[in-house]
Design a protein around this nucleic acid. Structure first.
Lengths: 174, 174
DNA sequence: CAAAACAATTTTAAGCTTGAAATTTATTCT
DNA sequence: AGAATAAATTTCAAGCTTAAAATTGTTTTG
């Protein structure tokens, strides 16, 4: 999905009227928007992955999993973690295995329902995560430094609309 | 990086003055923006992957590679493909192997420099890609249907600013 | 003209990711 | 209670991804 021109900032979208004159099935504007969105998130994401590896010898999935657990002091059920991270359940299994081995998280089988595994940050895991989280926040702040608070606000709002659009389209095709 | 609240649309950003009053090292606004951006692109991307698999028995990387080649009728050098797709060179090797096996692309060693491989869409590959591309454009249009042309224009512009911000931050830390 | 430097690509090792099938455990329904 | 159903998790097979090392081929330079 990559390949957007590197510095294309000209206005690509047209007003509704002009759009109506386009050939049927012409979705260029949406495609360009999607490519730009994807370019932005890929740029940020791969840089964050790189830095996590270099500076903490860790990975984004590990960081994300611990981030979920940080806000759940009493731990979280595996299925819930999987939903929140938007990844498949099988994925969580391996992550949890490794984070347990390395002592970052604990895992307990729920006594009342032995199908259910609850995981939580260990004190060590929490301490490690807090170090990483602070640095991570600085990285993001750095990468986003050229976006003013006002522009950031606009982006938040417009992305909220996009998110609703996508979620509602997904709900329809069920 | 997932885990943003599902329908959070309240204004998270504050004006510059309020921001100045926040504790030093408080990067919540940027973090929330990043999470929202990532949520949007993950939602779209995973749906596109799913549909490519279900309807065309294909994958996003394959589609992307062919999309690059479509605009290069005379073919493209592997290294160039790798750069445009923003993936590591080793990645391209495997993709090219499989797309060659399946007859979608051809590969030629440059006679003047035998290190260099040039790949191009075969007529079959081009025909297949065109079918996929048309459907793919419809999918995106569908997912983005709730975003008006005007809102899309705003998003394009704001994402352009973000992209410049990220690229310039990456250029600095070299 | 060799030797060193450089460039393009492939290989390797490790980890991530998915969907589907299998397992284990609980619940519901005769 | 026993059978079917459902739920939570794990296993499996296949493919993607990366960085680093290794290959292969070209160019530059002493």
């Amino acid at each position: 999905m990559m390949g957007e021109d590197k510095f294309d900032t000209s206005p690509e979208w047209v007003d509704g009227e002009t759009k109506a004159l386009e050939a049927p099935g012409d979705h260029r504007a949406e495609l360009r928007l999607w490519l730009r969105l994807l370019t932005c998130s890929t740029l940020v994401e791969s840089e964050i992955r790189r830095r996590l590896r270099e500076e903490f010898d860790s990975t984004l999935p590990r960081f994300d999993l611990m981030a979920q657990l940080e806000r759940a002091p009493d731990g979280m059920v595996l299925g819930e973690v999987s939903k929140r991270m938007m990844v498949s359940p099988g994925n969580i299994t391996v992550l949890v295995e490794r984070l347990t081995e390395s002592g970052h998280i604990s895992r307990t089988t729920l006594p009342t329902d032995r199908r259910v595994q609850v995981i939580a940050l260990t004190p060590f895991g929490r301490a490690e995560f807090e170090k990483m989280a602070a640095t991570h926040a600085d990285w993001i702040s750095d990468l986003f430094a050229g976006v003013s608070p006002k522009e950031g606000g606009v982006l938040m709002d417009e992305l909220a609309k996009l998110k609703r659009s996508v979620i509602s389209a997904l709900a329809k095709n069920t």
